[in-house]
Design a protein around this nucleic acid. Structure first.
Lengths: 327, 327
DNA sequence: CAATGTATTTTACAAATGTCAAAACGAAAA
DNA sequence: TTTTCGTTTTGACATTTGTAAAATACATTG
C-alpha cells in the first residue's frame, strides 16, 4: 500500500499526530505538560507541534460572522442604507486619538474574512477584486472549504509596488474556499482603446468577462479620487485625468472605473482602455460584499450605497459613524 | 429602529465587541494586556470576554478532519477494509498501560466531531443514532452551519441512567449544523409486537421511518453483546435474551438490533418490538460514519465492516491496531 | 568507524495567562 | 438621597506558555 494511494490527501502520519495533539490542547483543554507526559516527549516539542498546527492551518480559529454583524452600529447601517448585513470592526475604544490606518485595516480585514464565509454559499460564482484592502482580506482568510464554488478575478492583471499581482487575491481566496479559480489573462489597462477592444474579443478573455456578467457574489472595495489613489500610483491614470474626472462628478474608483455620487459610471480616460468587470455587472450580483477602510473614504462609500452597489457592507468604526452622521 | 428588526440575529452590541476582541486575540495575536489597553478595560475583563467567546461558541477552534484521516493506521484501515476514510484517534503514546476508556472516548469523540464536518454535505439528510459514544460526539461538535441539512433521529425515545434521552443527540447535532431536525416521537421499544406495529403505522411516525429509508448520511456506533450492554441496562432486553441472541450468532448491537458477524440482522427478541431504523436502511445510506471505542468491540466492529455498514470509520488506536491484526 | 546534520531534550528564565478576593464604581430601585 | 445589586478594577500570586542556548541523541553519509 503505497503512500500515494490517496493522492488527494497530502498529509502523513506525523501530521495526524499533530492534529491529535491540537485536539487534546484546544479541545480537551489539557496543558502542554500533560500532553507531553502522555506522548512521552518534551514540552518544547509540544510547543513546536502546536505552532506548526496553527502555521499550517491544521487548526483554524474562527469567529462567528453573525456576531460581528450584531452591533448597534451594524443595525443602524442596515436600517439606514437598506443592507442585508453590515459588519463594523472595532480595534480600539475611547482614547483621544483614533487607531492608525494599518491597525484599523488589519482588524477590518479579519472581520471581512469572517464576512466572506457568511456570504459565500455552495454553488456560488464569486468575483474578487484587487487592491490593498482586498489583499488584506485574502491574507486573513482561514481555510474553509465551501462546496462547488467558482472564484473569478474581476480586474485584469496589474503589478503595483504596494500590492502583489491582481490574480493573487483571487487565487488565495479560491484556495481557502477549495474553489475553482478563473483568472483574467489580460492587463488591467491597455495602451489604446482598439487594443483593449481586441483583447476583450479574444475567446478566452471574452468567456471570462461573460462569466463576470452573472456573479452570485462580488467582493470589492472602493478607492478614493485623492491624488494618492492607486490608479495614479500604478501609472494607470495621470493626476490631470483624475482631476478631470472629479470635475465631471467622480466620487470614487471602483475596479479601475470612476463612479459618481449616485453610483453611475463616469466614462472618462482610462475607462475605454480598462479590462475589468463593468459597474452594472457588479450591481447585478446577488450579494455584494464591499470592504471599506477609513473615514476619508466617506464620499466613495456614499457613492457605493447610493448606487445600490452593496448588499453587505464591511467598514471600520470611524467610517460607520461618519456614514450614520452624514445627511 | 427596534431591536427586533432582525429577529434572526440574536446577538447584541456587547456580543459584537466580544467577537472583535476574539479577532484581536486569536487572529491578530495581541496579548490580553495589549487588548485591555486598547479598549481601556482591565486585563481580567479581557480574560472573561475571551472565556465567554469560547463558552458561547462565538469562537470555534477546529482541527482539519483531512489531517486526522492521514495517519499510517488510517491508510491501512482504508486499504484493508475498502473504506472511503478512516479516522484514528490517539491520546497517549507508549507507556506500559493503555489509556482509560473515558480518556480514549473523549479524544475519539473530538476526532469524530471533526469527521462529521468532513462527511456531511449541503442538502444531506442525516440520520443520527443514540448512545454514550454518539452523545459524546454531539457534545464535542463545534457550531458549523451546513446548508440545507436535515437531521433525523434514528432510534425511538429512550431514557437511560447513563445517557440523556435519545432525541437529545439529534437535536444537538442539528443545532450545530443549523439543520432542520426530525425527532422520532415513539418509544424505542414497545411492550408488544402489535403495539409496535400500530405505532409504526401512525402517519407521523410512518413518515419519519420512511425518511430513514433514504438517508444520505448515517452516524452511529455499535454496541457489544456483553452482559453490560446498554440494551440490558436500559431494560430493553434481559440477560437471557441477549445470551440467546449470541448463541444464534449475534456479534453486535446496532440501533437496538442484533447483527451477526456478516452484518446481517438477527431477528430475535426484542427486535419485533423495536421502533428504529432498519439495518438494511443503514446499509443503503450513501455515507456511513461509524464511531467505535475500545478494543473490546473488535468483534462488533468486524460485523460492521464485513457487512458493508461503514464507509467512514472512526476508531481509537487500540481498536485500529486490533482490526489490522485480525485475520 | 568517524563526521556531519538534524531533531529533540534539558535547563532556565521571562512573559503571559488563569484565578481569586477585596475594593471600587455605577446604575437602578426604594 | 440612600441602599442594593451587578460589574469591573485592583492587586496579588500560581501556573502555563514562549523562547532560547547548550547538550544529547540519532540517522545518514563518506
Amino acid at each position: 500500500m503505497a503512500r500515494d494511494e490517496a493522492p488527494s490527501n497530502p498529509f502523513n502520519d506525523k501530521d495526524a499526530l499533530l492534529a491529535n495533539v491540537a485536539l487534546l490542547y484546544y479541545g480537551e483543554g489539557l496543558t502542554q505538560s500533560e500532553i507531553a507526559k502522555r506522548l512521552s516527549v518534551s514540552r518544547p516539542t509540544i510547543v513546536n507541534m502546536l505552532r506548526e498546527c496553527r502555521d499550517r492551518g491544521i487548526v483554524e480559529i474562527r469567529v462567528d460572522g453573525e456576531v460581528l454583524a450584531a452591533s448597534a452600529l451594524s443595525r443602524q447601517l442596515v436600517a439606514r442604507y437598506g443592507l442585508e448585513d453590515a459588519y463594523v470592526s472595532r480595534c480600539r475604544i475611547g482614547g483621544d486619538k483614533p487607531p492608525a490606518r494599518g491597525e484599523s485595516l488589519a482588524q477590518l480585514a479579519r472581520v471581512a474574512a469572517m464576512a466572506v464565509l457568511d456570504v459565500v454559499r455552495p454553488g456560488d460564482t464569486v468575483g474578487v477584486a484587487w487592491g490593498e484592502t482586498i489583499k488584506s482580506v485574502a491574507d486573513a482568510m482561514p481555510r474553509q472549504p465551501v462546496e462547488d464554488v467558482t472564484v473569478c478575478q474581476m480586474i485584469g492583471s496589474m503589478v503595483s509596488d504596494r500590492v502583489a499581482a491582481s490574480e493573487d487575491c483571487a487565487i488565495r481566496i479560491a484556495n481557502c474556499l477549495n474553489a475553482s479559480c478563473y483568472t483574467l489573462h489580460a492587463p488591467a489597462v491597455l495602451s489604446s482603446r482598439d487594443l483593449a477592444a481586441s483583447l476583450r474579443s479574444e475567446p478566452t478573455i471574452a468567456k471570462q468577462l461573460e462569466r463576470l456578467q452573472r456573479l452570485d457574489v462580488a467582493i470589492y472595495s472602493i478607492g478614493n479620487t485623492d491624488p494618492d489613489t492607486h490608479l495614479i500610483a500604478a501609472g494607470i491614470a495621470t493626476k490631470d485625468q483624475v482631476a478631470d474626472a472629479v470635475d465631471a462628478g467622480a466620487a470614487g474608483i471602483l475596479c479601475c472605473r470612476y463612479i459618481d455620487l449616485n453610483g453611475n459610471p463616469v466614462d472618462l480616460p482610462p475607462n475605454e482602455r480598462v479590462v475589468a468587470v463593468e459597474v452594472d455587472h457588479l450591481r447585478a450580483a446577488k450579494r455584494k460584499l464591499v470592504v471599506i477602510a477609513g473615514q476619508d473614504r466617506l464620499r466613495a462609500a456614499q457613492a457605493i450605497l447610493n448606487g445600490k452597489l452593496a448588499t453587505h457592507l464591511c467598514v471600520d468604526e470611524a467610517l460607520a459613524v461618519a456614514l450614520l452622521q452624514a445627511d
